[in-house]
Measured scan of single mutants.
Amino acid sequence: TRVETATETAWISLVTALHLVLGLSAVLGLLLLRWQFPAHYRRLRHALW
C-alpha cells in the first residue's frame, strides 16, 4: 500500500505540473497572438462576444 500511495502522489504531481505547463503555454500563446495580431484579435473577440 505504501508503494501504491507513492505512485499515486507521483501521478498527481505529474498531472498538476502538466496542467500548469499547459495553462501557462495557453496564456503565453494568447498574449503572443494579441501582441502580434491586434486587429485580428479584436475582430476575433468581437465575433466571440
Rank of each mutant, 00 (worst) to 15 (best):
A10W: 07
R2C: 08
R34K: 14
E4R: 09
R2V: 14
A39E: 15
R34V: 03
P38E: 12
E4S: 08
V3F: 01
S13Q: 10
T5Q: 04
R43I: 11
A10N: 01
L20D: 00
T7K: 09
I12Q: 03
A17W: 02
A47Q: 14
L30P: 01
T1S: 10
F37W: 02
V27N: 03
G29D: 00
L14H: 04
L28S: 02
S13A: 15
L22C: 13
G23P: 07
A26G: 09
V21E: 00
H46P: 08
L33Q: 00
L33H: 01
A10S: 11
L31P: 05
A17R: 03
T7V: 12
R45S: 05
E4A: 11
T1C: 09
T16E: 04
A26P: 02
T5I: 01
L31S: 09
L24V: 05
A10V: 07
W11D: 00
R42F: 07
H40P: 09
T9G: 11
T16W: 05
R43S: 10
L14C: 05
L30W: 08
Y41G: 06
L33F: 08
L14G: 04
G29I: 14
V27I: 13
W49A: 01
V21L: 15
L18H: 00
L30M: 11
V15M: 11
P38T: 09
S25Y: 08
R45I: 06
E4C: 04
L28Q: 02
R45E: 04
G23V: 14
Q36L: 11
L33D: 05
L20I: 12
T7D: 01
H40Y: 05
L31C: 15
L14R: 06
L24G: 05
R42I: 05
L14P: 01
L28T: 02
T1Q: 15
L22H: 05
T9Y: 07
V27D: 02
W35T: 13
R42G: 13
A17E: 08
Y41V: 15
W11R: 03
S13P: 03
L18F: 12
S13R: 09
L32E: 01
F37M: 08
A39Y: 10
T16G: 05
R42H: 07
S25A: 14
R42E: 14
R43K: 10
R45M: 04
S25E: 00
R45V: 07
A47E: 02
L28N: 01
T7A: 15
L18I: 08
Q36K: 15
T16Y: 07
L28D: 02
V15P: 05
A10G: 10
H40V: 09
L24A: 13
L32R: 00
V3H: 00
R34A: 05
Q36M: 12
P38W: 06
Q36H: 14
R34G: 06
A26N: 00
V3I: 11
I12P: 02
L48T: 06
L48V: 10
L31M: 11
A39G: 13
L44P: 03
W35D: 03
L30S: 06
L18G: 01
Y41M: 14
L18T: 10
E4G: 08
V27S: 07
H19R: 03
A6H: 02
F37H: 14
V27Q: 00
L32Q: 01
A6R: 14
H19N: 15
F37P: 00
R43M: 09
T7W: 03
W49V: 03
L20S: 08
E8V: 06
H19F: 15
R34N: 05
T9A: 14
T5G: 02
A6N: 06
E8M: 00
W35A: 15
F37E: 02
L48M: 11
V27A: 03
W49P: 10
G23E: 03
A6Q: 02
V15D: 00
S13N: 04
L30A: 13
F37L: 11
L44M: 05
L20G: 07
G23F: 11
R2Q: 15
A10Q: 13
Y41P: 04
I12T: 08
P38H: 12
T1D: 01
H46I: 09
L30I: 10
A47I: 07
L44C: 09
V3Q: 01
R2E: 13
R43Q: 11
A47M: 10
L48K: 00
L24R: 01
A47C: 05
E4D: 12
A26L: 13
Q36P: 00
R45N: 10
T1Y: 11
V15C: 03
F37T: 07
V21K: 02
V27M: 09
A47D: 07
G29L: 14
L44E: 02
V3C: 04
V3K: 02
V3P: 02
A39Q: 13
R42T: 12
H19K: 02
A17K: 07
L48Y: 00
R43C: 12
W11P: 01
A47N: 08
L22R: 03
L30K: 04
R43V: 10
L22Y: 10
A10F: 01
H19A: 15
E4N: 05
T16C: 14
F37G: 05
V15R: 02
W35F: 15
R34E: 09
L22V: 14
A17S: 09
L30T: 04
L14Q: 04
R45A: 12
G29F: 15
T16A: 09
V3A: 03
R2N: 12
T16R: 07
R43G: 06
L30E: 05
L44D: 00
L14Y: 00
L48F: 04
R45C: 12
L30D: 00
S25V: 08
L48A: 09
V21M: 09
Q36Y: 11
L24T: 00
T5D: 04
A10M: 05
L30Q: 00
A47L: 08
T1P: 02
L31A: 14
W35S: 11
A26M: 13
L33T: 04
A39P: 03
L18C: 09
A10L: 08
R2W: 14
A39D: 12
A39S: 12
L14V: 02
R45L: 09
V27H: 02
L48P: 08
W35M: 15
A26W: 06
T7N: 14
V15W: 04
R34H: 05
T9I: 09
A10T: 04
L28A: 03
T5W: 08
L24K: 01
I12H: 02
V3Y: 01
L32T: 12
G23D: 03
V3R: 02
W11N: 10
G29M: 12
T1G: 05
T9H: 06
H19S: 15
G29H: 04
S25T: 12
A47T: 11
W35H: 14
L31K: 01
R43H: 06
V15L: 11
S25M: 05
G29K: 03
L33S: 06
L28C: 05
Q36E: 09
H19Y: 15
L22A: 13
L22G: 13
